[in-house]
Lab assay of single mutants.
Amino acid sequence: NITNLCPFDEVFNATRFASVYAWNRKRISNCVADYSVLYNLAPFFTFKCYGVSPTKLNDLCFTNVYADSFVIRGDEVRQIAPGQTGNIADYNYKLPDDFTGCVIAWNSNKLDSKVSGNYNYLYRLFRKSNLKPFERDISTEIYQAGNKPCNGVAGFNCYFPLRSYSFRPTYGVGHQPYRVVVLSFELLHAPATVCGPKKST
């Protein structure tokens, strides 16, 4: 009989979030998941669920729940959905087409922007091929755009693959930082360890 609440607040209220290319994953298990708490945590810009209804979450049980978190800019949030393409979905964080879970995003301009520009958040701009779903690539190998090998040196047709967002508070919403948490629900042929409040007794 599990009584402890799932530590969603640790994920959502973390002081620092990860850069999207090096997104963070927390496995959540053996706890009571009260998803209604999430609705009250922040004024969400996005709370979209796929393959599951957000209002039914509190009635369900899962084997595992994974919470992935990272920062992107406002106009990239739409890429965090099944079947999307674009720089983020292709080279940084890719959801599977049959994704079961929820994408939660909110504006973090007050936390993640600086007047002089916050350069701490990076994204991958160049990659030889698209990522597979939930693949994480943290390599910093020089990207070869031409025929000549780069031998690890940046220059003509040889690019450092990561680029930094420079978040400034005066930017338009599309270029402001957004914190994203992706909850993916895993149903294996194994005992369910993460249940809503109704199912945990």
Rank of each mutant, 00 (worst) to 15 (best):
N1S: 12
N1A: 11
I2L: 14
T3F: 09
T3V: 10
N4K: 15
N4P: 11
C6P: 05
C6F: 07
C6R: 05
P7S: 14
P7V: 10
F8T: 05
F8G: 05
D9N: 13
E10R: 09
E10C: 08
V11K: 05
F12C: 06
N13K: 10
A14V: 08
T15G: 09
T15M: 09
R16W: 13
R16V: 15
F17M: 08
F17Q: 04
F17N: 03
A18R: 07
A18M: 08
V20I: 06
V20R: 01
Y21M: 05
A22Q: 10
A22P: 00
W23A: 03
W23P: 04
W23S: 03
N24A: 11
N24K: 15
N24Y: 09
R25H: 07
R25N: 03
K26D: 07
K26C: 07
R27Y: 12
I28E: 03
I28V: 09
S29F: 10
S29I: 09
S29E: 11
N30C: 08
N30P: 09
C31H: 06
C31V: 06
C31M: 06
V32G: 07
A33K: 07
A33L: 14
D34C: 09
D34V: 07
D34A: 07
D34N: 12
Y35E: 09
Y35K: 09
Y35N: 09
S36R: 13
S36C: 06
S36H: 10
L38G: 05
L38M: 10
Y39A: 15
Y39R: 14
N40D: 12
L41F: 15
L41K: 14
L41V: 13
A42H: 14
P43Q: 11
P43V: 09
P43S: 11
F44A: 15
F44D: 15
F47N: 07
F47L: 15
F47H: 10
F47C: 14
K48F: 05
K48R: 14
K48H: 09
C49Q: 02
Y50M: 04
V52D: 06
V52N: 06
S53L: 10
S53Y: 09
S53T: 12
P54H: 13
P54Y: 12
P54D: 10
T55S: 15
T55V: 12
K56Q: 14
K56H: 12
L57V: 07
N58T: 11
N58C: 07
N58V: 08
N58P: 15
D59L: 08
C61I: 08
C61D: 07
F62G: 07
F62K: 07
T63R: 13
N64K: 11
N64F: 11
V65I: 15
V65L: 14
Y66P: 01
Y66A: 09
Y66E: 07
A67L: 12
D68H: 05
D68W: 04
S69K: 04
S69E: 03
S69Y: 09
S69R: 06
F70D: 00
F70H: 01
V71I: 07
V71D: 00
I72K: 01
R73G: 05
R73A: 07
G74E: 02
D75G: 14
D75I: 05
D75N: 08
D75R: 07
E76F: 03
E76M: 03
V77W: 04
R78I: 08
R78C: 07
R78V: 10
R78Y: 07
I80G: 00
A81K: 08
A81C: 06
A81H: 05
A81Q: 09
A81S: 08
P82K: 04
P82M: 03
G83R: 13
G83P: 02
G83S: 09
G86P: 02
A89T: 00
A89E: 00
A89M: 05
A89S: 00
N92W: 02
Y93D: 00
Y93C: 00
K94S: 06
L95W: 01
P96C: 04
D97H: 12
D97L: 13
D97C: 07
D97N: 13
D98W: 09
F99H: 03
F99Y: 07
T100S: 10
G101M: 02
G101D: 00
C102H: 03
C102N: 03
V103E: 00
V103K: 02
V103F: 02
V103N: 01
I104C: 09
I104K: 03
I104L: 11
I104W: 13
A105L: 05
A105Q: 05
A105T: 12
W106T: 05
W106P: 00
N107G: 05
N107Q: 04
S108N: 03
N109R: 06
N109T: 04
N109F: 03
N109S: 05
K110E: 09
K110P: 08
K110Y: 08
K110G: 10
L111T: 03
D112A: 03
S113W: 02
K114T: 13
S116F: 07
S116Q: 15
S116I: 07
G117M: 03
G117I: 03
G117W: 04
G117V: 03
N118T: 06
Y119N: 14
Y119Q: 11
N120G: 13
Y121N: 05
Y121L: 13
L122D: 07
Y123G: 06
R124P: 00
L125K: 04
F126P: 03
R127F: 01
R127G: 05
R127I: 01
K128D: 11
K128L: 08
S129L: 08
S129E: 14
S129D: 13
N130E: 11
N130A: 15
N130P: 15
N130G: 10
L131R: 02
L131W: 02
K132Y: 10
K132E: 12
K132R: 13
P133W: 05
P133K: 05
F134L: 08
F134R: 07
F134S: 09
F134E: 07
E135T: 08
E135P: 03
E135V: 06
D137N: 03
D137L: 04
I138M: 13
I138G: 08
I138Y: 07
S139C: 06
S139G: 11
S139I: 05
S139N: 11
S139V: 05
T140P: 08
I142C: 04
Y143G: 01
Y143N: 01
Y143R: 02
Q144V: 08
Q144K: 08
A145Y: 02
A145G: 09
A145D: 01
G146A: 06
N147T: 07
P149A: 13
P149Y: 08
P149Q: 10
C150F: 01
N151C: 08
N151R: 12
N151A: 11
N151T: 09
G152M: 07
A154Q: 14
A154Y: 05
A154C: 07
A154W: 06
A154P: 13
F156A: 10
N157L: 02
C158M: 01
C158L: 01
C158E: 00
Y159M: 01
F160L: 11
P161G: 04
P161H: 04
P161Y: 04
P161V: 03
L162Y: 04
R163I: 15
R163C: 15
S164T: 09
S164M: 06
Y165T: 00
Y165D: 00
Y165Q: 00
S166V: 04
S166Y: 05
S166F: 04
S166N: 06
S166T: 07
F167T: 00
F167W: 02
F167M: 00
F167N: 00
R168K: 04
P169R: 05
P169G: 04
P169Q: 05
P169M: 04
T170N: 06
T170A: 09
Y171T: 02
Y171I: 01
Y171W: 02
Y171L: 00
G172C: 02
G172W: 03
G172P: 00
V173L: 15
G174W: 06
H175L: 01
H175I: 01
Q176Y: 01
P177D: 00
Y178Q: 06
Y178C: 09
R179Y: 00
R179T: 00
V180W: 01
V181R: 02
V182G: 01
L183E: 00
L183D: 00
S184W: 12
S184H: 13
S184G: 13
E186H: 11
E186F: 07
E186C: 07
L187D: 13
L188G: 15
L188W: 11
H189N: 15
H189Q: 15
P191M: 10
A192G: 14
A192W: 12
A192H: 14
T193P: 12
T193M: 12
T193N: 14
V194M: 11
V194H: 12
C195H: 07
C195K: 08
G196I: 11
G196M: 11
G196C: 09
K198Y: 13
K198A: 14
K198V: 12
K198G: 15
S200T: 15
S200Y: 15
S200H: 14
T201L: 14
T201Y: 14
T201D: 13
